[in-house]
């Protein structure tokens, strides 16, 4: 099993942290973000406005520290921006704003908005005949509580929206849980699904590239609830 944890990003995270303690939500997304940006997403700082780029939509906008650290590490934003994150002159809020941060596709923070925006993005790309780019939306298992997600899951499944991947980081934080697993909410609506160890980079890579081009795909990345 390949796990890099956050060693490479640790100094950048420290710059974002500025002495604050981060909750589990920050660390639970780091491995997924690394695999996405290093091995899956066709996007670079030079292609953030390319209509044929892959789209990554961070729906759980509070998981932003690792996101900013990674965007800085990969050259999307200057590393110096991390130092005053959340400050009055900063472009990096506690939730991201797409109009302020290069490479950020959506402004998020209120839970349950990313998947609907992702469905619309996938439909727009399809209407334009762009068959290359794929839309990835990162959610949390507690975020699935919001009913808007289930509107999007049902519709995308029923219409076979094949250029859409949802990633659910499952750190067991949903107050009432998802008996039978989060993936079952998707598969019953016709999605393909893979549930993997959210720290295992190779397993994540296989899952994130395991879509069949005929229907939407979900990857449930499970991590310890203490993480």
């Amino acid at each position: 099993m390949t796990t890099t944890t956050a060693t490479e990003l640790a100094p950048l995270l420290d710059r974002v942290r500025a002495g604050r303690e981060f909750g589990p939500n920050v660390y639970s997304t780091l491995d997924v973000l690394q695999v996405l940006y290093d091995r899956v997403l066709r996007i670079t700082p030079a292609t953030v406005d390319d209509p044929d780029r892959d789209r990554f939509l961070l729906s759980k906008g509070h998981a932003v520290a690792g996101y900013y650290a990674l965007l800085a590490a990969r050259g999307f934003v200057p590393v110096e921006w991390l130092d005053d994150q959340g400050g009055p002159a900063s472009r990096l809020g506690d939730h991201p704003d797409r109009t302020l941060v290069p490479g950020v596709e959506i402004g998020s923070g209120s839970l349950g908005h990313g998947l609907g925006l992702g469905v619309g993005t996938a439909l727009g790309l399809r209407a334009q005949g762009r068959t290359t780019p794929r839309v990835y939306v990162l959610l949390g298992d507690a975020e699935l509580d919001e009913g808007s997600n289930h509107e999007a899951v049902a519709y995308a499944g029923a219409t076979g929206l094949a250029n859409l991947t949802a990633i659910v980081v499952d750190n067991h934080s949903a107050t009432h849980g998802w008996p039978g697993g989060a993936a079952s909410r998707f598969t019953v609506n016709g999605w393909s699904a893979a549930t993997v160890d959210g720290r295992d980079h190779d397993a994540l890579h296989r899952a994130l590239t395991g879509h069949d081009h005929h229907r939407p795909h979900v990857v449930v990345a499970t991590v310890d609830s203490e993480e």
Binding site: P51, E105, I106, G116, L117, G118, V119, G120, T121, A122, L123, G124, L125, A127, Q128
Partner: peptide, 8 residues
């Protein structure tokens, strides 16, 4: 919103 983000 998603459609508009792609330019539609």
């Amino acid at each position: 919103g998603g459609l508009a983000l792609t330019g539609q």
